[in-house]
């Protein structure tokens, strides 16, 4: 595996392989000294053109636990502000000797464009509304951890919110479906792409209708600018229709799990404190983020050397 850019490219075998590898990484993270020398001498550059807390910090932590060197590119203090092009920026960092770029960009397709300009591996940490494959890996791993299910056959996953602008949704729909889950999207038609008849999903505009059927309720973040763009009349109205309220939590099955990729918009899609939700996996999602990203880095950059030993 050279790059991780989309779930599609990864495929079911790649997905399963990374999930298995994540188990090893989770074990390492349980150790008193959670660090191994697997990627000693390797350099991972973070290229984040968009803000991030979780993804960026978990990648950096993952790289360090595998003993890779990290390089952090800060757009606001870089020569990008002097007008340096993306291609020149990538070429410059490549010249310094890096083995992988972890890239987040507001524009769709940047990870693929960059792959043509560097010999390093590319990990897509989010490109526009297109793909966020490591988030999907995190979510699949987290569901597996909670349900002990090797595959998701028969599992009903409901994804609620701004599907149209969500890279998390696009990656997760592919990953959940690949593993056998039945995915239902719940959103007003304005927050769904115009034509999804070819996606392996059911669609509903009524959250209460599908709530009791769901094994997994996956809430997406609603950005406040969607109101200005006329996708929803008001956040209050959206919240009423599609937000997770105390009442809706009561309507969930007793073993149903609740997830959110973060960052949460409290009071919008989450009208309830997640700590008040019995089966919320939101903290597990964050915790597993490090293990999953260790697995990805090891798969792309490791030479098959063993994961044992101490750094």
């Amino acid at each position: 595996m050279k790059h991780l850019r989309s779930i599609d490219e990864l495929g079911l075998d790649g997905l399963n392989k990374l999930l298995q590898l994540t188990d090893h990484m989770a074990e390492i993270n349980q150790r008193p000294v959670p660090k191994v020398p697997a990627l000693r001498g390797r350099t991972v550059a973070s290229l984040f053109f968009e803000d991030s807390t979780r993804t960026r910090l978990s990648f950096e932590t993952a790289a360090k636990r595998l003993s890779a060197d990290t390089m952090t590119f800060n757009v606001s203090t870089s020569s990008v502000n002097k007008g340096e092009s993306l291609r020149d920026t990538v070429a410059t960092i490549t010249d310094m000797g890096v083995d992988a770029f972890v890239v987040r960009h507001k524009s769709v397709g940047i990870p693929w464009q960059i792959s043509a300009w560097t010999t390093a591996s590319i990990i897509n940490a989010g490109d526009g509304a297109h793909q966020h494959p490591t988030q999907a890996l995190v979510d699949c791993y987290t569901i597996r951890e909670a349900t002990h299910a090797q595959n998701f056959a028969g599992m009903k996953v409901t994804i609620v919110g701004d599907i149209k602008h969500s890279r998390v949704a696009r990656s997760n729909i592919q990953a959940f479906s690949m593993l056998g889950a039945k995915v239902t999207l719940v959103a007003p038609p304005t927050l769904l792409p115009p034509d999804i008849s070819h996606w392996p999903v059911d669609v509903s505009h009524d959250l209460d209708e599908v709530l009791a059927e769901s094994d997994v309720l996956y809430m997406l973040r609603l950005q406040s600018e969607r109101m200005a763009q006329g996708h929803v009349p008001t956040l209050r109205e959206y919240s009423e229709q599609y937000g997770l309220t105390q009442k809706r939590v009561m309507g969930l099955r007793s073993n149903a799990i609740v997830m959110h990729p973060g960052p949460m918009n409290r009071g919008v899609e989450m009208q309830i404190d997640p700590s008040d939700v019995k089966n919320s996996l939101i903290h597990r999602q964050v915790a597993n983020g490090v293990s999953v990203r260790m697995a990805v880095l090891f798969e792309l950059l490791g030479s098959g050397s063993n994961l044992g030993g101490q750094a």
Binding site: V108, G128, A129, H130, R167, P193, D195, H198
Partner: peptide, 18 residues
């Protein structure tokens, strides 16, 4: 808008030119 509003544009998450 970047490309035709179509299934491919839905998959890519790009704003469509209907």
């Amino acid at each position: 808008a970047v490309m035709n509003e179509c299934r491919c544009c839905t998959d890519l998450g790009l704003p469509g030119w209907p």
